[in-house]
């Protein structure tokens, strides 16, 4: 299928992009990697008056460490982050999660910020953002603001971004040396949307577990103290709370089963790789 017509703006600087957004507001959409968005435009699930292409804004193509966080600009490709030499050490969760995202051919074009902006309930990066308590930097012509993941992710495919705002960067806190990280997901075919994805951060006694694919947004649970013998019970309670839903790839029950079973695996893995 082919997309509906739209006007195209190629922003060469951030200011140009923000100007265009200010002008068009809700009638415009930002085009970054487009690996979800263009498919949805092709299917005519999305229509837009204007597409503002930010892929050529060089100033937004960066990966840097600042104030204890890894900051990734809006034009940075997923492949570039995956291949960034310090990733395993600086943000081990992202290092674990990135290979699960689509395929090398889609990571070559898909952006980190675009995935977070799209906020697909099954996506890996929004889950990482939620479980690591990362931040999203939003800019408009009016102002810049920074939102915590929990304040940014509202619903399935829905975020707190205002119509004239765009994400300019996302920030993932650097992994602290005492924590262990693990990521896993279940899908029927490697590279597909996860039926359930899980990300765990283990410290001393505590565990923070994020789950994607079972609700509109990633859901995160903290256990300040979680003894090995209590894991199953804790996960069962969490699974029931999440509920899950049926689709052609899995039932709600199956999703809860994965939360209980893979949940235990990622928690144990995170604990085992604590430094």
């Amino acid at each position: 299928m082919k997309p509906k017509p739209f006007d195209y703006v190629r922003a060469e600087t951030l200011d140009e992009a923000l100007d265009a957004l200010a002008r068009h507001g809700a009638d415009a959409r930002i085009l970054a990697g487009g690996q979800s968005q263009v498919a949805m435009l092709n299917f005519r699930l999305i229509e837009t008056e204007v597409l503002i292409d930010i892929t050529r804004i060089e100033a937004l193509d960066y990966i840097r460490i600042e104030n204890g966080a890894l900051e990734i600009g809006a034009a940075t490709r997923q492949s570039d982050l995956k291949d960034w030499p310090g990733l395993a050490e600086k943000v081990p969760m992202l290092h674990a999660a990135l290979p699960f995202i689509g395929h090398v051919q889609t990571r070559n074009r898909g952006t980190v910020c675009g995935s977070i902006a799209h906020s697909d309930p099954s996506s890996e990066l929004p889950l990482c953002l939620a479980v690591l308590e990362g931040e999203v930097v939003l800019r408009s012509k009016r102002a810049e603001r920074t939102l915590k993941a929990a304040d940014f992710q509202l619903e399935m495919l829905t975020t707190a971004r205002a119509p004239d705002e765009m994400i300019t960067a996302v920030r993932f806190p650097l992994g602290d040396a005492s924590a262990g990280h693990a990521f896993d997901e279940m899908n029927r075919r490697r590279g597909d949307f996860a039926i359930v994805s899980l990300a765990a951060v283990a410290r001393q006694d505590s565990v923070r577990l994020g789950v994607g694919g079972v609700a509109g947004t990633p859901k995160v649970r903290n256990w300040s103290e979680l003894r090995t013998g209590d894991i199953d019970e804790a996960l069962n309670a969490f699974a029931w709370e999440l509920g899950g839903h049926d689709d052609i790839h899995g039932t709600a029950r199956y999703r809860r089963e994965l939360v209980r079973r893979l949940g235990r695996q990622v928690i144990e893995e995170a604990r085992s790789c604590r430094r």
Binding site: L31, G34, V38, Q105, N108, R109
Partner: peptide
């Protein structure tokens, strides 16, 4: 993946890009 091409060296899906890009 049938439409995969190289754009500036990288393999990408040409169905997920617009010509003007």
């Amino acid at each position: 993946g049938a439409c995969t091409i190289r754009v500036d060296g990288r393999a990408v899906r040409s169905c997920l890009m617009f010509a003007v890009q």
